[in-house]
Amino acid sequence: MKKKSIVFSVIVLIVLIPILINLFSKVIEPDKVLFVGQQIDEYQGEFTKEIKDKQKILEFENIFDDLNFVKEEWYPEKPADLIFRLDHKDGIFTHFYKVWIDDKEAIVLSAFDSENDITEIAKLSNEKLNDLESIIK
């Protein structure tokens, strides 16, 4: 009888441990994770940094949510200097941006319509660019 109860307990633990680990990881997982990287070529990017600090993510969102994106034709001469993606806990991602930096400002691309060669771009002032660099360091 003792042997059966021990075997039963072990089986129950084997079944419950993965469920508990999965539940625990979802509870401690941050609501949002900001991924920062660089563009490798026209179609590929590599994310090399994860930011999980809630305050930094909020500052990042504020910078980009305040931008005024306009639709126009724009053809980058080189791959983006920075790329960003904000992953949410529920499995979606937002704030996918490509950023080209020059001396005084940056150009931010948020969307590209390849059929019509139209992009949604905005300019990021030097001040906002400095704020962005302090967030990702």
Rank of each mutant, 00 (worst) to 15 (best):
F69Q: 00
I40C: 07
A122S: 11
Y43E: 06
A80G: 01
I136V: 13
E61D: 09
D31V: 07
V33M: 07
K3Q: 06
G37S: 09
K2C: 03
I121H: 05
L20M: 02
S114V: 12
F96I: 00
T119M: 10
F8P: 02
L34Y: 09
K56P: 03
K78C: 02
N62T: 10
K4Y: 10
F60I: 09
L16N: 04
K32Y: 14
I101C: 00
V12F: 04
L23D: 11
N22V: 02
K26D: 15
A80Q: 06
K137C: 01
D113R: 11
K3W: 11
G37E: 12
K98Y: 03
L109T: 07
I14F: 13
Q38M: 07
N62F: 05
V99S: 01
F112P: 05
K123F: 02
I136D: 02
E77N: 12
L132D: 01
E120N: 09
L20T: 02
E50A: 12
S134Q: 14
V12K: 02
L34I: 09
K137I: 07
D87C: 04
V27P: 11
Q44S: 13
E50N: 11
K32Q: 15
L132G: 00
N126R: 12
I14V: 15
F69E: 03
K54Q: 09
S125H: 12
E133I: 13
V27G: 06
V108D: 07
F60M: 04
I136Y: 04
L82Y: 15
I40Q: 10
N62Y: 05
L129F: 03
V70K: 13
I101V: 14
K54N: 15
D113H: 12
